[in-house]
Simulated assay, not measured.
Amino acid sequence: MELTPKSIRRIELFVSNDISHSSYLVTALDEFCNKNNLKLDLSFNIYGNEGRVHVLHNDLKITKHHFLKVCYVRLTLNTSKKLLLAFDFSDSDVFFSLKALERVDYYFKRTYTQNNVELVREKFKTKVLPLGIPFMVRPDKIKNRKRLKIYFILGNLFNAIKFDKILLSRLSKRYTKSTLELESFITTRTLSDFQNYSKPKDLNSVFYQKRLFPNEKDEDTREVHRQRIGIVRLLKKQFPNHFIGGIKNDKNLHTGYKDCASSITGSQAEFLKITKESGICIYTRGLANSIGWTLPEFMSQGKAIIAEKQFVKFNEELVHGKHLLYFSNSTELEQNIKDLLSEPLEIERLSRNSRAYYEENISPKIYFRNILEKLNA
């Protein structure tokens, strides 16, 4: 039986413990249900989070670690058949949810790298597919807000239960953190904010804005920080009349990096505003080689994007020279910028193509429809 909107009787979303990443799925499902006259039912996450699969040295290691960034969706078809889908929003390409791999029919992985997925497929029967390029967004109107709040907070409290002497303190901290995360979702940018875009004020402006993370204990974090600082200093030196942005000026910006401080506050609303006004936007990876939210945000606004070359697999390939320009080092980055600044028509061509990719592959308006098409393939 072909899977179509008309073949679905019920869609059930089990509220995730991570609302920031799963907000993209919440918005996509809301759009899909609105368009196809279906009801989106919210449920408490009954699947639990304990159990993690770690791809380590070309082998799999299974541990009891909790895996929080996974969201479940259950489809009930008109035939009464049920399909369980898992959406893994983790930054890491080496960690997977054990329970999801054991239970679901399809597993969608955000940071999907071919070799690691193939190792997982050898042990588990679940079909693992690329999730796509999500970002934080909410529906224009949040439905069932009270139920979403209850399930989200209860899920996080339940996950914090461990009977020891600091149980009450841990529950209190988890409750506070959960309410702050929920408030961030409720006040984040809406789907309409991303759907609406216009020609930039200055086609030759070059925008790069990043932040530093709270600690540098991990070598991956240190490498990300070195890269971001290096790029800001390059842009300030080589393109002083075009560069906008820098490193968010907060407590994580060390004294030695204050020359990189940005005058842009880094709020979500201001970030999108500056993106809309810019002609050229530069993207670099997140932690663990993940694809950060800024890449789809740039594409939503039809930007000419110069992006660090990545190895994550998407449903539809991002093609160098068509959707964006890739760079592997600072020399290539600098040359790409110079080439675009000398060719305004090329900026406009890349801009049209990046927006088209967003509309066809990323926008929450079409995302879940595309998922169904993948399941039919």
Rank of each mutant, 00 (worst) to 15 (best):
R10I: 03
V15Q: 12
N17S: 10
S22W: 03
N37G: 11
L38Y: 02
L38K: 13
R52P: 07
V53S: 04
D59K: 15
T63E: 00
K64S: 11
V73N: 06
R74K: 14
L75F: 04
L77H: 06
T79W: 09
F87M: 07
F87R: 06
F89M: 02
S92M: 00
S92I: 00
F108R: 06
K109E: 07
T111S: 15
Y112M: 09
V128E: 03
V128A: 02
I133Q: 14
R138P: 01
K143S: 11
L154Q: 03
F158L: 14
F158A: 14
N159Q: 07
A160R: 00
I161L: 11
K162G: 15
I166W: 07
K173D: 12
T176C: 12
K177Y: 13
T179L: 13
T190Q: 07
D193V: 06
P200M: 12
D202F: 05
Q209A: 04
F213P: 08
N215H: 12
E223A: 14
I229M: 08
F239P: 08
F243M: 07
K251R: 14
N252C: 05
N252Y: 09
I264C: 05
E270W: 03
W293M: 01
E297F: 02
S300G: 00
G302I: 06
G302T: 08
K303A: 04
K303M: 04
H320S: 12
S354R: 08
R355Y: 04
A356Y: 03
I366C: 10
